[in-house]
C-alpha cells in the first residue's frame, strides 16, 4: 500500500471535495497565493481560482462568520485557521453562531462547514501557538470535533467532515504534518464519532488521540517487551465521544490509563476518566490513571518544551503507579 504524509492526505481530501462539489470553497489567511502556512493548499489557487480559494484579511471573526453565513445559505465552506490558538479570536463565531444556529432556529438553518486548524505543541512556537483547544471545543453541543492521528485517518475523517451537514472542527497536530502512513488508493471514509482500536491487547487499556498516540504507541511497544499486552484506543473524535469502545475495552483489560498531549487539567481525558469510572468502576483493578502535559504555558526552549510535553515515560510511570505493571 502506498505511503503518504499527513499533509498530503488532508490535501487529497480537500482537493477531491473541491473537484466533486461546486458548493465547496475555501477561505483562510494566506491559503491562496502563499499556499498555506503549512503548505496544505499549495497549488489550489492555480487549480481552482480565486473565487473558490479565497485569501482573507487577518480577520478571524469576519471570515469565520462569513463562512457560517455562506453555509447557512447552502454553500459548504472549508475554513483554515493558521493555528488553533487563533480560534480564540473567532470563538464567538464558532460557539455562539456556528454551533447554536440550528438549535436556536428550531432546525431551520444548518451550518455545513469544516474548520481546520493545526494544533498542539512540539514545534517550539511557545505559549501562544502551541495549545490544543480542540478540548475546549469538544464541550460545545451542535458541532463535531475530530483529531486524526495519522494519514489514513486524516483522509478518511476529512472526507466525512466535508460531507457532514454540521460544523466540524478538524484539529491537525502540527507535529504530524510530515508523518507518513499507508493510505490505500481505493476510496474510503471514516465515520465521525467512532474510536479506533489501534492495537488489540488484554492487560491494560491506553486511550489517547491525535499527537498523544505517539507516546502511547511507544509505551505500548515498551510494555510488550516486558510481557504486558496493551490495548491502544485512538478516540479519533472528541465530539461525539465513543465511550462504548473505551468502556468495552476496560471491561476486558480491567486497567486503564488515559493520555493527553494537551495540558493535563480540564481536557477531554478528564471527561473520559469520569465516564469510565461511572460506567466501569466494578471492572477496574485500580484507579483510572490520567496523563497529560504539564499545566504551564508552553515554553519555547526545546528542552523545556519536551519536558512539558507528554512522552512515553509519563505513560509508563502511570501504568506502574496505578497498576504495578
Amino acid at each position: 500500500m502506498p505511503e503518504i504524509i499527513y499533509r498530503e492526505a488532508i490535501k487529497r481530501g480537500l482537493e477531491e471535495a473541491l473537484e466533486r462539489d461546486p458548493r465547496v470553497f475555501m477561505m483562510g489567511e494566506d491559503i491562496g497565493e502563499y499556499g498555506g502556512a503549512y503548505a496544505v493548499t499549495d497549488g489550489f489557487l492555480e487549480k481552482f481560482g480565486p473565487e473558490r480559494i479565497k485569501d482573507t484579511p487577518i480577520s478571524e471573526q469576519a471570515f469565520m462568520g462569513a463562512g457560517i453565513g455562506a453555509a447557512a445559505a447552502g454553500l459548504r465552506p472549508i475554513i483554515e485557521l493558521m493555528s488553533i490558538s487563533f480560534s480564540l479570536v473567532a470563538f464567538d463565531q464558532i460557539v455562539n453562531m456556528a454551533a447554536n444556529l440550528r438549535y436556536m432556529s428550531g432546525g431551520q438553518i444548518s451550518v455545513p462547514m469544516v474548520i481546520r486548524a493545526p494544533t498542539g505543541a512540539g514545534v517550539q512556537l511557545a505559549a501562544t501557538h502551541s495549545q490544543s483547544f480542540e478540548t475546549w471545543l469538544a464541550e460545545v453541543p451542535g458541532m463535531k470535533v475530530v483529531c486524526p492521528s495519522n494519514s489514513y485517518d486524516a483522509l478518511g475523517l476529512i472526507r466525512s467532515a466535508i460531507k457532514d451537514n454540521n460544523p466540524v472542527f478538524v484539529a491537525e497536530p502540527a507535529l504530524l504534518y510530515g508523518a507518513k502512513a499507508e493510505v490505500p488508493d481505493e476510496y474510503y471514509e471514516i465515520e465521525l464519532g467512532k474510536a479506533r482500536i489501534a492495537r488489540a491487547g488484554s492487560n491494560i487499556t491506553l486511550v489517547s488521540y491525535g499527537y498523544g498516540m505517539r507516546p502511547v504507541e511507544a509505551a505500548a511497544d515498551r510494555l510488550s517487551m516486558v510481557g504486558v499486552s496493551a490495548e491502544v484506543i485512538d478516540l479519533r473524535s472528541l465530539n461525539p465521544l465513543d465511550m462504548d469502545t473505551v468502556v468495552a475495552s476496560v471491561q476486558k483489560t480491567h486497567r486503564v490509563v488515559v493520555v493527553d498531549s494537551a495540558r493535563r487539567t480540564g481536557g477531554i481525558m478528564a471527561e473520559v476518566a469520569a465516564e469510565v469510572q461511572q460506567r466501569a468502576a466494578e471492572w477496574l483493578d485500580g484507579p483510572v490513571m490520567r496523563v497529560g502535559s504539564v499545566d504551564v504555558p508552553w515554553p519555547y526552549s526545546h528542552d523545556l518544551e519536551q519536558k512539558v510535553l507528554t512522552d512515553s515515560d509519563d505513560v509508563l510511570n502511570a501504568v506502574s503507579e496505578g497498576y504495578g505493571l
Partner: peptide
Amino acid sequence: MGGHAIVGAHLPLAAGLALAQ
C-alpha cells in the same frame, strides 16, 4: 436569518450570506 444576540456578531454572518449570493 435572525435575530442575533451577541452585539455585532451577526455582521459577518450577513457578509457570508452576501458572499453566497
